[in-house]
Every structure is written in C-alpha cells, then in structure tokens.
Design a protein around this nucleic acid. Structure first.
Lengths: 349, 349
DNA sequence: CTGAAAGCGCTAACAA
DNA sequence: TTGTTAGCGCTTTCAG
C-alpha cells in the first residue's frame, strides 16, 4: 500500500528526542553509558517515528552483516525443513537475519561455488546435508567467514552430524534380535544428484549382519529411487520374487519405508506379520503411521549448528574444528515383529 | 579456516586494473558505457582478488537492499518447503538474496508484527499461509515495501492462492460420482495455532453434498489434530463406530489421509474396497502411496509470488491489487473406488 | 554521560 | 568512455 516515502533516520529520531545521533545509536543498542532518562526519551521518539535501524548502514561501519546464511540443496525435504525451522528462530533471537541459499540442481550448485554470493553478505555459513567434494570444501575456506557443516564430516572444520553407521547397525541388530535372518536394505538416491547417507548406513547394516555371522547377499540390497513410485514398486517386486525373500526390510528413510509398506500391503503381504519394515529418521509421518524407525533429530542439528555459528561469529578464539556427533535412537513401533514361526512358503496360508 | 583478513574493496580492484573505482562499479554491474577492453581487465582483477561487492555499501546508496524476505510459520511442512524451494532460486536468479523469517509459535509471531524486523532489511515481503488478522495485515501495510500474500486472500493487496472451496468440491463430487453417499470430512488443526484452509474446504464439501441433495451430518465431520497420532486414531474410531459409518473419507491434507488409511487398515478395514480415502495437496508421499487426492502446487504459488514481488520491486507502477487464483486438479489414484455393492454390516465377511 | 567529526564501501551525479 | 566528488545512515573514536 504505502509507497516509497522516506524512512526515518537516526537523525530524525535525534532531533525529535533533542539529542545527538550518536546518543540515539548508543541508546538503541542498549549501551550502558546512557542515562535512563535520555534512553527513555530516545526510545519513545523511535517508537513514534516507527524507526528501525538500517542494518546496511550499521554493517558498513561494524564490518558485521548481522546475517547467518544457510546453504541447502532444497527445502522440500523433511530433514532440511526441520533443521532450518530450528535454526531460524535461534538466529532471530540473536538479533540476526537468516539468509537461505538453495541449490536444487547441479547448475545452481556450481553457480554457488563459483560466485560464492554469500561472501560479504553473511557472518557465517551453515552448510546442510551436501556431499561436498574436497574442492568445494576448500573453496568455502576462503569465504572469509566461519563455515559450519551439518550432516557431514568435514575434516578439521566444525561439523554436526549423527553416526549413521551406528544408527543403521541398531536397526539391523534390532531386526536380528527379533529373530530375522533374511534382512533387506533399501538405500535411495535423489534424482537431483544429491545423495543422502546411503554409504554409511549400508556399512552399519553390513557390520551388524557380519557380526551375527550372516552372509551378505547383494540380492537383498535394492536401491529404490527417491521420488519414483514405479521404481519403488519394482524394487518391492524384486524382493518378493527372490528365491528366498526377506522377512524384514530396512529402508534408508521413513518416507521410503512408508511407500514400501504400501506396496507390500497392496501385494497382500501383511506388515509386520509376514514382513517387518523399519525406516530411518523418525519423520512426522512415521509417528502417524506407527512406523518403527531409527530417530535422528534434524532440529537438534540445526540448533547446535546455529549455536556453533553464533559462537564462532562472536568469539574468534573459539575452537574451529569441533565435531558434534549426535545420537540416534531406535524407536520400535508396530511395523516390526518377530518373523512368522514357520518359514512361510510364498503365498501359502 | 581463513580468519578475518580484510576483504578486498573496489578501490583495490580499481588500483589493480588501473582504473577508477566508479569504472569498476560500472563494469561489474554490466552497465553499457564501458569499453569491452576495460571491462575485461576489471573482471580479471576482480577475479584475481576474489572480490565480491558489498551489498551493504551498495544498498546504502541505492536505497535497495537486494533482499526478498519470506514470512513462514514453519519450514517443517510440505507446503512451505515446496513454496520456498521454488521462490529461492527465482530470487537468486534475479541477483537477490532470500531472507526467511520463521514464526513457529505465537510469541515469535507477535514479536514479528511488533518489531517488523524486515523493515529496512528487504525490498519486498512474501507472506506464506498465515491466517492473518486484519490488524496484522494493516500493520504490514506500513512496512514500506510491497507485501505479497500467498495462500490467502488479502483484500486490495497482491495475493496468490488456490480456490480451496472448489478443490474440496471436486473431491466430494468425485466421491459422489463413484456412488458414495456417506462421505466424511476430516479437517485438521495445527498445535501451534496456525490453521490451514479448513473453513474453505468444509464449505466446498458441504456445497457438493447439498447440490446432491444429501443431508449434512455433523457426525461425519471429525477434526483430527495434526501431529497427534492418538487423536487421529480416535477420530478414525469415531467414524467407524457411527450407527451408519462413512464409505468414504475426505481428509483435509494428504499426510492426514495417509494416517487415516493406516489406522483403517490396522482395524482390518480395506481401503478402498470398504472405505475410500482421498486427500488434498498431492504431497510427494501421495504419489508413493498411490493416494487419490486434489493437487495444488505450492511451488507454482512460490514462483508466482516471487515473480510478483520482483515486478512490484522494479516497477512501482505495477498493479498492487492483483489476485492470482491457481487451479486445483483431482488426481484419482488407488485409494478410492465405488462403494461395496451391498451396504456392509461392520466386521462381517 | 553526551556531542562532534570522521569514515565504512559503494553509487550517482557531474565533469572532462 | 572515464574520473572526480559527494554523500547514503550509521558507529566509533576522541573531546568535553
């Protein structure tokens, strides 16, 4: 509605309060060296004029932008959405702004690392869930600001992540404890070239099986493409048509687990009676559908990364190599159960 | 890694390229009045020094911040995640930054409208999916920048939204066409006080029934709290224990529909054979689980809102009251079917 | 405790 | 086509 009328400046406030601009500046920033009487007068004048400090002007002299930047491949995902949802308010509470850089595809990603648009426009960068090349990591080093890595280990640089190997190990171990011996693993890949933590989770899965003296069977590892219904359907078909089908499936992420359950049930396979399914994430929908899963907390990661960022911004002597490894928790719900007592013969009974 | 060494300024680039700072400014902004020879030299110098323009300094003189701000209740939601995922790259492509304000709870929301932190820190604000009070809307009017409303009608102000009434009408009409007569509606509420489009969708649902001469039955409208598994479970129980249970359920959002289907199946009710379920959104998971739904496109909304914002920023004469109403599409998948020929008697058979 | 003055890095007249 | 000059609105010495 209102058009480009000139916004009030500190000088306006100063005049109205009958003091100098520097006094206004000090009063508004809550510096101690201001008499409470003057402070009150300044604050009132500011309110009356609807005055807001120009961050641009302030940062020009302080050298701080008052901005925390976040780099995410997409926001259209439970993980990143949750992480930023906790990072945002934290940044706000510190009186700073949250700036978001999205790189949904390879072109955007390349452009980001080429131009580094965040340079000079933020005081810290939080990088979420990328699988960065060494080259990219090095590039970020001369961004001139602290860079915090979330959901990935960055050697010698501040990082926050969960132990994916252990998480996958727990899921697999749990299924073994229930009595399962034929356990499938369904890793997933994104269409946009971004990968999740398949590698680590596969490792944990294998480790648990090996410890239990169960031979690895590559036929039980079936990648199912994220975002492709047909592909998931076929993957499920592949598992069901094995000579010896699995009695349990560990899906790399909850959303995939939900889809797998859907196709199993459509094929008249009962979950968990005939096949158990467990996911990874503890996505909200896992609660709603009572899905067994391994919980990780992206919101904790976002929060910790934010705190780390603020600390690195304000205390240049802070430890710049800190790694925070968060725990995962097994959450057994109703999509897992012991295998049916007799090794079932396919459709029979 | 690298610490707070002084970043190169335009003066540094100018010196290195052997020209004046203003020439550097012009060259880097791609203004026409620069010989290509000089431009090349400047660009090279800038690259060598790893120079990036300080937006702060530039905006101080231009009066533009180069920032588009987005106000969202949370990012932890399919709708907002998708919308911002399309808004972000668009803003970047225009050479601007995306700044995000999150108001996960009432306190943050109040604080935002009280302090209007976006003022002076952005050139436009895109407000997503709030159910704003008149007071809040008016407050945004004197923000000193164009404000674009997404997923809500704001009288006399630019808005982008879908016709929820019509969408709900389509879903209900489709179920009627299949032969259903007992159709339930499951609206949902968020725990954080933010509501979705329940009101409009209820209207559409009722309208379709009325047109079909089917009496409205409030027992068939059961609100199920978003984010509360138990509550959804109970809601499903409520429907199943009606004297005359529904043969179809229209859920306000896909995620709720998925949960409803889950509990129906757990109760040994076959979907869609015994009860049809349809959602609203066309959430990604709807594809994976083959859920019938009414599609809306938050990414289209984000894109259109972004384009509108850019237009309003650059062309102050643009129409500031434009309303863009996007279509919804019925997507029949496999969770809906005609009702079973004989009216089933509960558990029987 | 408060004011005056200088300058942060850039762009936009105005000259040349 | 390029250089010179004067600020943009704020914070920060340094005086008082």
């Amino acid at each position: 509605m209102s058009s480009a009328q000139r916004l009030p400046t500190m000088a306006d406030v100063a005049e109205r309060a009958g003091v100098s601009p520097s006094t206004v500046s000090r009063a508004l920033r809550g510096l101690p060296s201001i008499s409470s009487e003057v402070r009150a007068r300044v604050e009132e004048a500011a309110r009356e004029l609807n005055f807001a400090v120009s961050r641009q002007a302030a940062s020009l002299v302080t050298g701080k932008t008052g901005v925390v930047a976040a780099l995410v491949p997409t926001l259209n995902s439970w993980f990143h959405g949750s992480a930023l949802s906790s990072l945002g308010p934290l940044v706000r509470a510190a009186g700073m702004e949250l700036s978001v850089y999205l790189t949904p595809d390879m072109a955007e990603r390349t452009a980001f690392f080429e131009r580094l648009p965040a340079r000079r426009n933020a005081d810290a960068l939080v990088v979420f869930g990328f699988d960065l090349t060494d080259e990219e990591t090095v590039r970020l080093d001369d961004l001139g600001m602290p860079v915090i890595y979330v959901s990935q280990h960055a050697e010698g640089r501040p990082s926050v992540y969960v132990d994916d190997v252990e998480g996958a190990w727990k899921a697999t171990r749990y299924l073994l404890n229930l009595g399962h011996r034929r356990i499938a693993f369904a890793p997933t890949v994104g269409t946009n070239g971004f990968c999740f933590s398949s590698r680590e989770r596969l490792l944990g899965y294998r480790q648990a099986l090996t410890e239990a003296d169960i031979p690895l069977d590559d036929g039980l590892v079936v990648t199912m493409a994220f975002e492709d219904r047909r592909n998931i359907e076929e993957g499920v078909g592949k598992l069901l048509s094995l000579r010896e089908p699995p009695t349990a499936v560990f899906a790399e992420m909850d959303e995939l687990a939900i889809a797998i359950i859907h196709f199993l049930r459509r094929a008249r396979v009962r979950v968990p009676e005939q096949i158990s399914v467990i996911g990874f994430d503890d996505h909200q929908i896992a609660q709603w559908t009572d899905l067994s899963t391994v919980a990780q907390s992206p919101s904790d990661m976002g929060r910790l990364a934010g705190e780390l960022a603020l600390e690195l911004i304000h205390d240049s002597g802070a430890d710049r190599k800190r790694h925070l490894v968060l725990p995962t928790h097994l959450i057994p719900r109703s999509t897992t159960a012991p295998p049916a007592a007799p090794q079932r013969d396919e459709e029979d009974r």
